[in-house]
Design a protein around this nucleic acid. Sequence first.
RNA 1: GUGGAAGUAGCUCAGCUGGUUAGAGCACUGGAUUGUGGAUCCAGGGGUCGGGGGUUCGACUCCCCUCUUUCACCCCA
Length: 427
Amino acid sequence: MKVPPVKGTRDFYPPQMAIRNYIVDGWKAASLRNGFEEYDGPIFEYLKMYQIKSGDEIVEQLFNFTDRGDRKLAIRPEITPTLARMVNQQINSLPRPIKWFSVPRLCRAERPQKGRLREFFQWNIDIIGIDDVLADAEVIFTAINYLQATGLTADDIVVKISSRKMLAAILKEIGIKEKDLESIYTILDKRAKVPDDAFEEMLAEKISDADIRQKVTQLMAAESIDSLSDIVSLSDKANESVDELKKLFQLLETMGVTDFCKFDITIVRGLAYYTGIVFEIYDKQSQLRAIGGGGRYDNLLKQFGGPQVSATGFGIGDCVLGILLEEKGLLDGKENNRQIDYFVACADKQFAKNALEITTKIRRAGFSASFSYKATGLGKQLKQASAENAKKAIIIGEEFEKNQLAVKDLESGDQTLVDIDKFFSQL
RNA sequence: GUGGAAGUAGCUCAGCUGGUUAGAGCACUGGAUUGUGGAUCCAGGGGUCGGGGGUUCGACUCCCCUCUUUCACCCCA
């Protein structure tokens, strides 16, 4: 009986696994470089954990099941709730700032499409306990720091940045009521993704006052932070968050990454819980493809039963990123990272036992070594050595009688005779 | 969940308006090569043509259903 792979999943054969590792290792290295510590949680949690943040409609978008103890559980579709739970549990004993990262394997029961599968990996970094845009800047820097390490440049990607706090203050200034903010955000989030008239239509459904609507449209067309005051007179509260955003850009300048960053008021993020700085990373070439995003969420820990603690973070999945890196040719050669130190070739069957002994000894000394299972000709064995990307081949044949090995450098082709004792003492 | 497109060897694909035993390149295995690799040449294995049903003397080809992939929506944590 042949069973197909499950819809929306991937099999990682060695070449794909090598690429996955390349990406994940890069994430981990960038995290550690920037002072983050790794954590992880279980791959399933109580279903209600995901309803706290996102409501009931989320249930059909995740894989859920009931265990034998009648517990309603779900495979994690994100790790932020787990992070909130873990941090809350030890909030009083964790040294601040809490700078943690994770590379969870996540599942979502969505319909698969390009850059979006039902099982994927996501890099998350979070800074908890620092109520300062410096933390937001550091998160953004860390993301860019990784992306640069892959070879991506400011010509390839852009980090679009805005502030929910600022947007809320200005919208209120314009005349939007506090209770309507949430639903307006959802519409504004689509500003760059839908045509002008469709946007106007959506807006009209929510805002009946034409003057207010016009102000909102003007606001969403603002090109720079400074031009905001031309559209509306800013309240003290709005000015405060404008200054905060400006400070963020100054910090990013000090960090040397302003080439990658751009103010973009249309960045709102669909998620309800963002409270301050928000940002999304886009591929410049293929217009408007978000490859990752994040922002400040100062109320989340409280929502999960903890104290009010400020937090800011960022997440990026492996699917879209992988496609982007592939398109840019930045994964070339990454699919084969196999490499062994020595390939032990046996030139004559009578030395088979000795060859196995030598192989074992090399392995015991901490080096990787391989050999052929079949007693084929030396040519075949060297061919195998090349195929396995061995650095050197050890040839065991008649010279073995004189306690010598032929050591061949497979890159240069140089070959030397070495005494066995000397070979091992120089390993 | 809604709509469009596609599915032939491990991969990329060819296969005429329905007609005999479904092909190529790459990959894989073996040989040329019993002490010297990456190249070259030769040979070989590998397909219920995604699956099921229907039309037909006859289906890879036409029709229906289904699965999977993919694109656009919904959603995006």
